[in-house]
């Protein structure tokens, strides 16, 4: 970028990272495609998309897909709204630092250490949510509890950089708080919202840790996720099923993130056009 003549030097700097990343991530990702179109782990006969269609006929996969989609569709927007509202409250009320810190603290708590609490509160006899058909509710609560802090950090950083003059001008114009929120703050926050959404999606996969620590490899079917399905296919040595379902999962994520990027680009254009 800066000095064209020293091109090889850049490669030298990137090489250690690139070798490891290539061997451990890129090659595996593309190498897995071969398995997803093979008859089985031990028979590489080409079967085209049979594994993909088979996977969609499989009950365990259907349940896992349904649960994962349900979890993501509910918990991601809810978490984003909750963290944005809390961030606004902290910012506008100039809340004491302990408030912010308390909400952020769960980030640092390993999943295994709080199973004692969650099992006791949501799993005791007579009011056993974890083993009931509403188990997903517990999972969503744990997710929100654990991840509000991340989004809060990003939102508070954004709020502290907000142009105060725009806000003051709107106050002189007589806009009330909700008008200001609707017409100024929220549009201004589109790029941050996109970033927060992506971070939240990435963090949403980690819910597997919490479900695993609560209920192991074969949890209540209501909270059986794609990650469980993939792990269990690994233990059954069904690599062809594993890779095809993993690619379906990746494709879903890529599509959502791609749409978010388009939203971001559109916003940038609109702002630039004004």
């Amino acid at each position: 970028m800066i000095f064209e003549s020293k091109k090889y030097k850049g490669l030298l700097f990137i090489l250690p990272s690139l070798i490891g990343f290539g061997i451990l991530y890129v090659i595996p990702f593309f190498g897995g495609i071969k398995y997803s179109v093979s008859k089985s782990s031990f028979n590489s006969t080409f079967v085209a998309f049979n594994n993909y269609t088979d996977v969609f006929k499989n009950n365990a996969f259907k349940i896992a897909l349904k649960n994962t989609c349900f979890f993501m569709i509910i918990s991601i927007p809810v978490l984003i709204v909750i963290s944005f509202v809390i961030a606004l409250m902290i910012y506008e009320l100039k809340a004491p630092k302990i408030v912010k810190l308390s909400i952020m603290l769960p980030i640092a708590v390993p999943s295994g250490t709080v199973v004692g609490f969650f099992k006791k509160v949501f799993g005791f006899n007579g009011f056993n949510l974890i083993d009931s058909e509403y188990a997903m509710l517990v999972v969503i609560l744990i997710f929100i509890w654990k991840n509000t802090g991340y989004n809060l950090i990003i939102y508070l950083a954004g709020l502290s950089q907000m142009d105060k003059e725009v806000i003051e001008a709107s106050m002189i114009d007589g806009a009330n708080y909700f008008q200001r929120l609707q017409y100024i703050i929220i549009p201004l926050f589109t790029p941050i919202n996109v970033f927060v959404a992506i971070v939240t999606i990435i963090n949403s996969f980690k819910i597997f840790k919490d479900i695993y620590m609560l209920q192991g490899s074969y949890p209540n079917p209501k909270i059986y996720m794609l990650q469980h399905y993939i792990n269990n296919k690994f233990n059954d040595l069904q690599y062809e099923k594993l890779t095809s379902s993993a690619y379906i999962f990746s494709l879903m994520i890529f599509v959502v993130v791609f749409l978010l990027f388009i939203l971001d680009k559109k916003h940038a254009k609109r702002v630039g056009g004004n």
Partner: peptide, 19 residues
């Protein structure tokens, strides 16, 4: 590099294992 952080751990699991 960016696409890679979007992937859940399980996606590269088996290929990783084979590598």
């Amino acid at each position: 590099y960016i696409l890679a952080i979007l992937l859940p751990f399980q996606v590269t699991l088996v290929p990783n294992y084979l590598v």
